[in-house]
Design a protein around this nucleic acid. Structure first.
Length: 725
DNA sequence: TTACTATGGATTTTT
DNA sequence: TCCATAGTAA
């Protein structure tokens, strides 16, 4: 089979390239995934064993997509396609004992890490007002990203007051992680590189296995990821990296743009291929994107072009207020749908999560279905983290962060003071958290509390026994039953509690899915899977809903119509980037703007608000400087006239009815009961966006049956209905 | 220990 | 505005 059919000459060259280092500079929308997958297929066809190919991505979604596309081209042989983190976890599970951890290690997320940092600071008697746990965590993370161990950092910190404090925390933190047999996200990469450096025989094994390596989104790699790739590709040097320096937007997370800019220096005789033809956007949109990005200085020269149509001008709407801005966007979307488009053709991409609020309110008010990504992520929700903490403690008796989290959830009368004592005891005696619970009568000053602690210890032991012969979903059910977790939520009887129960159900579903699909059905494998997923991984365009997400999470996606609200100084570019001494920060904002613009296929709409309620205060920002960088003749500017907008504002009810829980994302469509009253009665007059007016004729647990005027009887989720007065 | 109130602090976050 | 936390009362 010819895998170069329908490819342009540059794409063809990239697909046919086989041995040696290759840098693919792939502009936005230039068909990079297509090239990557066809290249893999071509390698296999020309005799490379799929077993010898490794493809690395940043997100599970990208990995999954690539895998599917490769399989559809060459439906035999398994290529190892996975994220940096999953790849490393797989390597570590086999080999981590060589560097002093147990292979049943737990993976801590950012929240767990922060708790551990706080614990460390408390233990070291550091004031968390002077030194914020968050910034300490960022500092430690960036050290790990740069492959600097706590021992090395102690030397670097020297006598610098702040750095030496951080160094002490880093040391304590790392030792605690080790004692808990836990790794944080940065450790996953850091320790893999350490493993390769310390144990050359392990490295050689993987070098032999991965004769061909492909790395996607190379501009986002940090130093440790770069080092990992350099080591793995060190022997065969068949390394193909794909990236776009103009789309590097994770510098603040340690991504080192140098990695892509210096690829040719780092890998001798590298072939460089530029993919500059864009297949996604209209000429106008590309012109805007190019005009903005050309103001950046540190970049590889590259200019995107397209054969697509001229397309529509870019809309700029200068709103009076954030309310006016939301109203405008809502109206535009309604208009797009009336013109025959789908809701899912529309994406609203913002610089900060906080900007979604007023837009959500407006969408809800107008019964426009939407899905929001980011915000509180599914696996970071309290109830989910609680259940996972039980699972983790069951799996890893040393995990005191998880133990601490659930020891008094639901309330068992074991307070902060007792927990501290148990922790100290387990550290002093060098025993696991679980063992400390069992022999808690030996702890001084624990008093009569030991009875309750023992009960908890027995509970965990029983669950641990149960876990041996039962699958994950049954184990979760057992936890819920034995702890009375659900009962407590039911007793609360609030919308919020109901939402939490729903989320727990989703988790159980997730476990069922896992049991059906996964090869390795152990608790360990389940925990691993859930610790390494992100929100955007759940993005599908199956549902016909408007999409809301941050500009950062939108990378790699595309939509016919893109709205970017908050196109203002201090928001986009952000206040911090404007305050920064380094011009790099502003340039990164500009790249983010470039990413945002190039998400759009047909229409791009930018909006700013003259006044905006932010953090409870009114702020007044000028339109973004990026707007001025777009040629005037391709922008239609509209400015809200004050009289009209006042009228608009007055028609919006002052008080929102019945605010309840926020469902945000995952498998929930629309914003559920942020909507008005969902307790309908039979006989209520209601309105639904598709079917129009109707009357409620029956109500069940989840659905309301409505007789729509002239359109018959339909069952509808109550949150999609609006009451008519 | 817990349940209440006051206060202060709020980018972006692939895993 | 909304959230997490610190401090206080019971």
């Amino acid at each position: 089979m010819d895998f170069t059919k329908n490819l342009n000459p540059m794409q063809k060259e990239a697909v046919l390239h086989t041995d040696g280092p290759l840098l693919l500079l792939a502009g936005a929308g230039s068909g990079k995934t297509r090239v990557l997958t066809h290249r893999i297929a071509n390698l296999i066809q020309s005799g490379v064993n799929p077993f010898n190919i490794l493809a690395i991505t940043f997100t599970n979604k990208a990995a999954k997509e690539m895998k599917e596309r490769v399989n559809s081209l060459i439906p035999y042989g398994e290529v190892w396609v996975s994220t940096f983190h999953s790849t490393c976890v797989r390597i570590l599970r086999r080999n981590i004992a060589k560097i002093g951890y147990e292979n049943s290690f737990t993976i801590y997320d950012a929240d767990d890490s922060e708790r551990l940092i706080k614990q460390a600071m408390k233990e070291l008697n550091f004031n968390d007002k002077l030194l914020k746990p968050k910034s300490v965590m960022a500092e430690i993370g960036s050290q790990k990203d740069n492959m600097i161990s706590y021992e090395q950092f102690e030397i670097i910190a020297g006598s610098d007051f702040r750095l030496s404090k951080i160094s002490q925390i880093y040391t304590y933190y790392q030792k605690r992680l080790r004692a808990n047999n836990a790794l944080d996200f940065d450790d996953i990469i850091f320790l893999t590189v350490k493993l390769f450096r310390d144990c050359p025989e392990v490295l050689v094994g993987y070098q032999e296995r991965f004769k061909y390596i492909l790395v996607d989104e190379y501009q986002d790699t940090n130093t440790s990821q770069y080092e990992l790739i350099r080591l793995l590709a060190g022997k065969h040097k068949n390394l193909c990296v794909v990236g776009d320096d103009d789309q590097s937007i994770y510098g603040w997370r340690g991504a080192n743009i140098r990695n892509i800019l210096d690829f040719e220096k780092d890998f001798e005789n590298a072939t460089v291929i530029k993919l500059e033809q864009n297949y996604r956007s209209s000429k106008t949109i590309l012109e805007a994107a190019n005009a903005v990005i050309k103001n950046n200085h540190s970049r590889k020269s590259k200019s995107l072009w397209t054969d697509n149509n001229e397309g529509e001008n870019i809309e700029f709407y200068k709103a009076q207020s954030d309310l006016d801005e939301s109203r405008y966007i809502t109206e535009q979307i309604e208009q797009n749908v009336l013109n025959g488009g789908k809701y899912s053709d529309n994406a609203i991409l913002y610089r900060q999560n906080a900007l979604s609020r007023s837009i959500e309110d407006s969408l809800v008010k107008n019964n426009i279905p939407y899905r929001i990504f980011s915000g509180v992520r599914f696996y970071e929700r309290r109830e989910i983290k609680d259940i996972l903490a039980y699972l983790r403690l069951i799996h890893n008796p040393f995990d005191d962060i998880s133990g601490r989290r659930v020891i008094n959830v639901p309330k068992r009368g074991i307070g902060e003071a007792s927990v501290e004592k148990i922790l100290r005891f387990s550290t002093e005696q060098e025993i696991s958290f679980s063992d400390a619970l069992v022999i808690c009568d030996n702890i001084e000053g624990i008093g009569t509390r030991h009875k309750k602690i023992k009960e908890f210890a027995v509970l965990i032991e029983e669950l641990r026994d149960f876990s041996v012969n039962n699958n994950v979903s049954d184990l979760i059910n057992q936890i819920l039953e034995k702890t009375g977790y659900i009962l407590e939520l039911q007793a609360e009887n609030s919308d919020e509690a109901l939402g939490r129960i729903e989320n727990i159900d989703s988790l159980i579903n997730k476990a069922h899915e896992f049991e059906k699909e996964s090869e390795d059905k152990t608790l360990n494998a389940f925990l691993e899977e859930v610790s390494l997923v992100a929100d955007v991984d759940n993005y599908t365009d199956d549902d016909d809903t408007v999409v809301l997400m941050t500009l950062h999470s939108s990378k790699g996606l595309e939509f016919p119509n893109v709205f970017i609200p908050g196109f203002e100084e201090n928001i986009f570019p952000s206040y911090r980037s404007l305050m920064s001494q380094s011009s790099n920060d502003l340039e990164e904002e500009r790249r983010l703007c470039y990413v945002g613009i190039t998400r759009a296929r047909e229409n791009l709409c930018l909006t700013s608000a003259t006044s905006r309620l932010q953090n409870g205060q009114f702020v007044y920002n000028m339109p973004s400087r990026f707007l001025e960088e777009i040629p005037e003749d391709i922008v239609n500017s509209t400015r809200q006239n004050i009289g009209v907008s006042m009228k608009t504002i007055n028609t919006i009810p002052a008080k929102k009815p019945n605010i309840s829980f926020k469902t945000n994302n995952y498998d929930t469509i629309n914003s559920t009961s942020k909507n008005s009253d969902i307790n309908f009665k039979i006989g209520d007059k209601v309105k639904q966006i598709k079917y129009g007016n109707g009357t409620v004729i029956a109500i069940s647990q989840e659905e309301v049956t409505v007789a729509f005027d002239g359109l018959g009887i339909k069952k509808i989720k109550p949150q999609l209905l609006k009451r008519k007065h």
